[in-house]
């Protein structure tokens, strides 16, 4: 880099970052407020008692566990389905390939409420009970796209001659996949999987329609927002979510960075 950024550009960058983080600062601030039903600024006093309150809230831990479970299974399914589509479509053009790429994007491109209502009405038409699995089916469907996009981008950059060399040297299809293709797309899978996990972990719109009595973390938080008491508990829950998710994203980022440059 020979030139430096102009100061309006720097200012705009700093401004955008501050804009993105100001509400998060507010969440942190009000996790310590002494008021339990209002949020005046500046807060009248500070306390750490809300952290103790949440430790005893079993419904919170149950919702957190539910969200982690849903996100993990939905991500696994999305990795499987998204990778298969990417492997099928990256090299060859065939009739309907564009339609397939559109179909993959559709669940995330269409407003969540459309997918939500559509899934809900089919689930009830089929007479299936709402459960953790109906939530997972919905989540996996819109998570496919993030895996697919990451994997196909990587496959396009990977030269096909290494695949041919592998089979010329006598490797079976599985061996080629396991020892040649998989190491090449591993970090793309990781990055796509992290995004899928994030998408699922935070989703509320489709989840409201595909869940029965189950509470994922976002649904728990939503139910919490309408309660007049113990409001800062929600903020503490948010802090826990933020802190436990920063580390994996950062690692995923480092992981994809180091391979991109080689």
């Amino acid at each position: 880099m020979t030139q430096r950024a102009s100061w309006p550009l720097r200012l705009a960058t700093i401004g955008a970052i501050l804009f993105l983080h100001f509400p998060i600062f507010v969440i942190f601030l009000y996790a310590f407020t002494t008021e339990e039903s209002a949020f005046t600024f500046p807060p009248p006093g500070l306390t750490t008692s809300w952290f103790g309150v949440i430790a005893g809230r079993e419904d919170f831990w149950r919702a957190l566990g539910m969200s982690l479970q849903v996100a993990a299974i939905a991500t696994t399914l999305a990795i499987l389905l998204g990778t298969l589509i990417a492997l099928a479509t990256y090299r060859r053009s065939f009739f309907g390939r564009d339609a397939i790429s559109l179909l993959v994007v559709l669940p995330i491109a269409l407003p969540g409420i459309v997918s939500g209502i559509a899934l809900r009405s089919s689930i009830s038409l089929l007479g299936v009970d709402f459960s953790i699995w109906t939530i997972i089916i919905g989540h996996a469907t819109f998570c496919i796209v993030t895996v697919y996009n990451n994997v196909i981008a990587r496959l396009r950059r990977t030269s096909n001659s290494i695949v041919e060399a592998s089979s010329d040297l006598g490797a079976s299809n599985w061996q080629t996949f396991r020892h040649v293709i998989l190491p090449n797309i591993a970090t793309a899978l990781l990055a796509g999987g992290m995004l899928a996990f994030a998408l699922s972990f935070d989703e509320i719109i489709v989840t409201t329609f595909t869940a029965g009595q189950q509470q994922t973390l976002p649904i728990w938080i939503f139910s919490q927002l309408t309660r007049p008491r113990d409001r800062p508990v929600t903020n503490v829950a948010a802090i826990i979510v933020v802190l436990t998710t920063i580390i994996p994203i950062y690692l995923a980022y480092r992981f994809t960075q180091s391979t991109r440059e080689t």
Binding site: I17, L20, H21, P23, I24, V26, I27, Y30, A198, F201, D202, I204, L217, P218, I221, F222, L225, T234, N235, A237, A238, V241, V242, T245, I246, I249, Y250, Y253
Partner: peptide, 17 residues
Amino acid sequence: LLVMVPLWSSYLVRVYA
């Protein structure tokens, strides 16, 4: 990382903030 963190922190809580 600074762009990703808001994406990861709960959508609802950010709206509430």
